[in-house]
Every structure is written in C-alpha cells, then in structure tokens.
Design a protein around this nucleic acid. Structure first.
Lengths: 150, 150
DNA sequence: TTAGATGCAAACGGTTTGCAGGGAA
DNA sequence: TTCCCTGCAAACCGTTTGCATCTAA
C-alpha cells in the first residue's frame, strides 16, 4: 500500500518533469530521468559529488557535466531546491511540495534539522512592503550546537 | 564634530583588535592594521577581491594570502561578519555592534538592502527549544525583485 | 537528418597551501 | 636571534566550458 503510494507519487513527479521538458523543447533523455529517479529515491540533502558517487555505485555512469546540466533543469521546474549553507559548494534537496521548511545546522557536524515557523511569512510581508519589492524566495538558517546539559 | 566621533569610534575598534591580538599572542603587524582600517573606512559589503583592488588603488600592496589570513582573525574577534548570499564566494561586512540586521538581495543586480525585524528572535527561541540547541548565529535572506507597477 | 545532449578533459575562479625571505618581539 | 607573518605562485576543488561524438525527434 505505502509502496504503491510512493510509486504513484513518483509517477506524478515524472510527469511534471516530462511536461516541463516538452514545454521547453528539451529532449527526454534517459540520463535525465535516471538522475531524477536517483534524487527522489533518497532522503535529505546532497551535493553534486555525492550524487555522482551514488550513481556510480548504482552502476549508472553519468558525467558531472550532465549532473550539473540536469540539476539546472530540475531547479527551473521547481522539483529541486538549492541551498548554500555558508560553504562554497551548493547542496540540494528534492522539493517537498507541501512542506515548506527552513534549516538548523550543527556547527561541528554539519547535520541538518528542518523546521517551519509560519511567523516568517509575516516578516516576508513586511519586507515586501518596506522596500516595495516582491520576494521570490528566501533562506532562513540557524547555526549552533547542542545545549550543554547542566 | 562628527569626524571626531568617527575617529574615536575607530580608535575603539583598533583597541579591540589590539587586545585580541595580544591575548592570542599574534603579532601586531602594520598589514593587519591597514586592512582593518581599509575595511572600516568604507560602507557596505565587500569580497576579498574587491578589498584587494581597493587597497591597491590606495597604494597599499598586500597579498591576497594576507587578506584571507587577516579576515580570519577579524571574524574570530567579531569585528567582521561573513555572508554567503547563495553564491560560491564569500562576502563580508564590518560588524555594527548595535545594529543587528538581515538582508534582501535583488535577484538581477545583487544589490543588498538591510532590515531588522525583531520577530526573528521569537522564531530563534522556538527553534532552540524544539531541538534543545543553542543558536550561535543565523542567516535570514530574502531574494526578489522590484514590484511591477501596474 | 540534425540540433540538442552527453562524456571527457581542460579551463575557470575563489580559496588554500608551501616555501623562501622579512620583520615583530 | 627566533619564529611568526608576508608575498608569491602553485595547488586545490567545486563548477563551467569546449569539443567530438552520440542520439532523440
């Protein structure tokens, strides 16, 4: 049951990607679909190198160039989100349609926690009014460490 | 009057840096003080390359290596803050002791606006309680564009 | 058939590092 | 005098690009 649900969900993702590719007259290559599948098959955040290694381990050889190229498309159609957690390399995660969230990063390990606080929307609105702008996206990240137990 | 006030303020900054260097048994080299001065003499955000060029124009030749080295010290003693606005290079700004603020970035030009909304503190507290952590710092950045006038 | 995509490797650009020479303590 | 710091240039590493080859349409 659950398995089927997940499959159905991925079918939907696949369809979104297909529609996007068709709309923009991009080719539907097997590489692109395999990358999409690999990304949606795993949880959490990843960087390009990790994804590259993972696909190698799964016996599917793609070039880094194609990974960068495809990630670009996935970002453009909203299926993947890009983060830059204070480092000089990018991290990504599959978009979770109905669960907008922000991040807490452990200073030492880099471990990522997710949360959502609706009050951020109020701040966003205020910023939009203050500068007379339209916010397209935002990034809220807290950094810190476990509380020292007393 | 105002000029004097600024100078006094910089004297104070200088003193903070000196105390930091002494405390950590780091040498008080002229390069380090010149870099500090250059950073506090200008407004807004900057990256290493910009600072490098600017110092060259002011007829003071420093190596990039020394800039990176010194910035590290300034970050460590809290006189400078580091940002990574979604790019793969870092931007910095002098710390403004009494004016905590966040950023709005224009997607096209990269222009930076600053704001402060106290409601972020409430979100921070909630995150600390939720994950039982202590937040050491955070980053809140909105990205967007000017409102299209109708 | 052909324009767009892939794979490979070289180029790029910000940052880091190794090392010889220089200067603060 | 000592050894930390500086300047220079090479190394690093994530990302981008050029190009020959391949393939979806």
């Amino acid at each position: 049951m659950i398995k089927k649900g997940l499959d159905d969900n991925f079918e939907n993702i696949r369809k979104i990607f297909t529609e996007y590719l068709e709309k923009h007259a991009h080719r539907k290559t097997p590489e692109r679909y395999t990358i999409l599948k690999e990304i949606f098959a795993t949880e959490g955040h990843f960087d390009i190198e990790t994804l590259y290694i993972r696909m190698k381990n799964h016996k599917y050889r793609v070039s880094r160039a194609t990974l960068y190229n495809t990630i670009e498309l996935l970002l453009d159609c909203g299926l993947v989100t890009r983060h830059q957690f204070g480092t000089n390399y990018a991290q990504f995660e599959k978009s979770m349609m109905f669960t907008q969230h922000d991040h807490f990063i452990f200073n030492d390990s880099g471990e990522v926690k997710e949360f959502y606080d609706p009050r951020i929307e109020a701040i966003k609105s205020t910023v939009e009014e203050t500068f007379n702008v339209e916010v397209t996206h935002y990034s809220l990240t807290f950094y810190g460490h476990a509380r020292s137990k007393k």
